[in-house]
């Protein structure tokens, strides 16, 4: 785990690429209990005006959050985590999936031993999350 004293504003977290496939969406539906048809049924997704099946916003949020929990090493140290969903993550019916790129940087250091991490999550260069921030408690 990075030490509070060693972390500065501007410290970068290791960026990661994540592939999201239809299988990932189905798996997430089962684990989360969110079976909204727009996350697995192309016919319904298109009928309601979406380009295709879209990933659960919560799967995108959870995946982006891994950059933070991988960095800190302890998921229990996340004090808060919030995002705005700015674009749907469209997942085509193929084997490669949609690549979600997530980067993070320490944006603020607080006196109580916590730091704020700002996350950037993009698909094809477009931001899919806005105002994505996590506060984590370091040692």
């Amino acid at each position: 785990m990075p030490g509070y004293a060693d972390v500065e504003v501007g410290t970068e977290l290791a960026a990661q690429d994540f592939a999201l496939t239809r299988a990932d969406l189905v798996r997430y539906a089962g684990a989360s209990g969110d079976f909204n048809v727009i996350h697995w049924n192309e016919r319904t997704a298109k009928a309601v005006g979406l380009p295709n099946v879209i990933a659960h916003g919560m799967l995108t949020m959870a995946t982006a959050g891994r950059v933070v929990t991988d960095w800190v090493g302890d998921p229990g140290r996340v004090v808060s985590y919030g995002v705005r969903f700015s674009r749907p993550v469209v997942v085509e019916d193929d084997d490669t999936g949609t690549t979600l790129t997530v980067a993070g940087v320490v944006e603020a250091k607080h006196d109580d031993g916590t730091v704020t991490v700002a996350l950037t999550a993009t698909v094809g260069g477009e931001k899919v999350l806005m105002a994505a921030k996590a506060v984590v408690r370091l040692s």
């Binding site: 727009i38 919030g82 969903f85």
Partner: peptide, 19 residues
């Protein structure tokens, strides 16, 4: 109408982790 719903914002503020 659930099919017309997309997620706008989400946040979690923890007192402690879930175990």
């Amino acid at each position: 109408n659930y099919a017309m719903v997309v997620h706008g914002e989400q946040s979690f503020a923890f007192h402690r982790p879930v175990m």
